[in-house]
Write a protein that binds this DNA or RNA. Sequence first.
DNA 1: TCTGGGGTCCTAGGACCC
DNA 2: TCTGGGGTCCTAGGACCC
Length: 414
Amino acid sequence: MFALIDCNNFYASCERLFKPEFNGVPVIVLSNNDGCVIARSNEAKELGIKMGAVFYMIEQEIKDHKIAVFSSNYTLYGDMSARVMTNIARFSPDVEVYSIDECFIKVPVTTGYEKFAHDVRNAVIKNTGIPVSVGIAPTKTLAKLANKMCKRTGGVCVLDTEDVITAALKEYQVEDLWGIGRAYATQLIKIGINTAADLRGMPIGFIQEKLTIQGVRMWNELWGKSCIPLSDIIERKKGLCTSRAFSKLTNSIDDLREATVNYASRLALKLRRDNSCATVLSIRLLTNRFKTDKPQAYPSISISLVHPVNNTHDIVAAALSGLEKIYLPGYMFQKVEVMATGLIPETEVQLNLFSSFNGVLNDKLSKIMDDINSHYGVGTLRIASESLKPHWAMKRKYLSPNYTSKWADILKVK
DNA sequence: TCTGGGGTCCTAGGACCC
DNA sequence: TCTGGGGTCCTAGGACCC
């Protein structure tokens, strides 16, 4: 049996944890650049605030209902997530951290699933203050489904017999299934497949044709046959990406250079934290796709690097050379994307017979930079062309303090 | 003025091999 | 009159996830 444990309204719950005066009050959390709503407390959901709602379009509603607003604070959420996962790990040796706010575990008991679910839930709530829901079922797909049904059942839901599963599938909308997104949902509903039970009732050939092999796995899982194993080993990443919209559009090559340098050095840091090196670096400029009356362009380039690298200087230099090649003067750009692919572990980097490159493991400069920055704060030591507070930097007007990870931000109790 | 950021997997088709 | 059968690798695009 699998359990899916999911934090309720995770980002909103994190913010509320340190602002208890917002308990019982509608709370929303915004995406980067304070663009749209990405988390809502139950009260905000009840007011009809939609996931993905565009912030500036609902400002009046927010004022009218006195909704508390936060910019997203991933430092805080990441730290709270680690605390939740650590608590869950005490209940099972097999944990797959699936996202920042949810994990699958193998259920270590063979009976008494309800009690087990309540034990996990109560422990996490008591030790971290974050409310969670626990869904238990024979497969991961069904555990996901059980978890979503927790809203009705009070935080815990067990689907352990064929009768219970069948009844649940009949009530469950096909578009809410794990693995059915917008495109598939539209197609399925058009031909009269509305519930999970309808989908499960279709022949496997139909599933294979319409939804490919992943659909076949899901279909089997709905029948209780486990096809998606728990992956409790963290796989190496295949690519890393830094991409962020600017607070305002720009066509200035200087702005774009500055942004590219900033993003590329962030990317280099991500690579080093991942202990991997890039063999290919891609860079892309993007115009604002919502401004349909303005000319659109998404120029990009992929650069094969001479050596696999993860030091800031080489990554930045490659990114800048790419930028010069793709820059188009006549467009207002909203975003630059810097991507590293063809990643290899830094311990497996081969040296090149024909160059003086000394290998990543001898890269003392990066190590010193990272040490100083982790001790004195991000940006203490950086390359000269990187700016600390650029004018195009993303908006984070409603940012909360880093209560759990910065000495200066720790809550003071009188 | 203002619409997120980061990933994964699968398929089809083309280029190439013997 | 008529042009095989089996592969691999890569890329672009589309679907999905949170």
